[in-house]
Nucleic acid binder design. Structure first.
Lengths: 132, 132
DNA sequence: GCAGACCTGCCAGTATACTGTAAGGTTTGC
DNA sequence: GCAAACCTTACAGTATACTGGCAGGTCTGC
């Protein structure tokens, strides 16, 4: 399989696949006589693994760790769980922050009549620090 | 006031204040004979405005728009509200995505016993696409 | 008059994960 | 045999918002 077919199969742009190789996230692919990268089923599985982990918000660094654990038959599931929990905490932190931002914004928007008149509590609050 | 005092008063690093000036977000400050930037009360208010808008997640580009509206006595509050609502939508999108990620992760973590045994549903799911 | 804090400009680097582009070689199908 | 599609490397650029570091000038207090 050429990189185009793999791109198709995994949903990852060819460029991204090469990038993953360049940073050592995946092993360098075999090459054809014309120097094209050649892939097999296992490579597809690996790239799909990466794609799914990325969708769950793991950084490339963590994806690398997850892959190491994946390939380590001696791994403790606790190690994997630890990574997942750490990712979960980061998500929770972001959720907390976003929720708080949303709450304040919602509050401000409700106060603003939003018509042609110039007076606007949103600007007032930004200007005078009375944000709730 | 020198930039250090302003930094103190606003909570923004001096470097950041200079940066804001360099990108035209704030007017160039007056200068002392020794070429130091000089600030007054109004500058503090402006920088605080920026800092609060940033805390609400507005991009610098939007902060610039908000400031233009702030200074425009002819503004319609609807314009301000529109900016706030657009920011709110972005926050909601991120919240939706994060919540979904969290749900999947939570589900995976619950399945994983997290001990010394190597078998781990988290890796299994990443490897075989059965993510819920 | 001098140490130490504070300031200056400027360029480059940080973080993260790609993405674009140019110039050129390879393969495939008709 | 030739065009179109596909592939190659390498370098630079994108996005966002700063942050670091350097060499050197300025201000303050004793």
């Amino acid at each position: 399989m050429n990189i185009g077919a793999v791109s198709e199969a995994t949903g990852l742009p060819a460029k991204t696949i090469r990038y993953y190789e360049s940073i050592g996230l995946v092993e360098p692919a075999e090459r054809s006589t014309g120097n094209y990268r050649l892939y097999g089923e296992r490579d597809i599985l690996t790239l799909r693994f990466i794609e799914r982990a990325r969708r769950l918000g793991f950084s490339l660094k963590e994806v690398k760790e997850l892959m190491a654990l994946w390939h380590d038959r001696q791994r403790a599931s606790a190690d994997v769980r630890r990574l997942a929990e750490s990712q979960m905490r980061r998500i929770d932190e972001r959720l907390t922050k976003l929720t708080e931002m949303r709450r304040t914004l919602q509050h401000l928007i409700e106060q603003c009549h939003g018509d042609r008149r110039p007076d606007c509590p949103i600007l007032d609050e930004l200007a005078h620090e009375r944000i709730e």
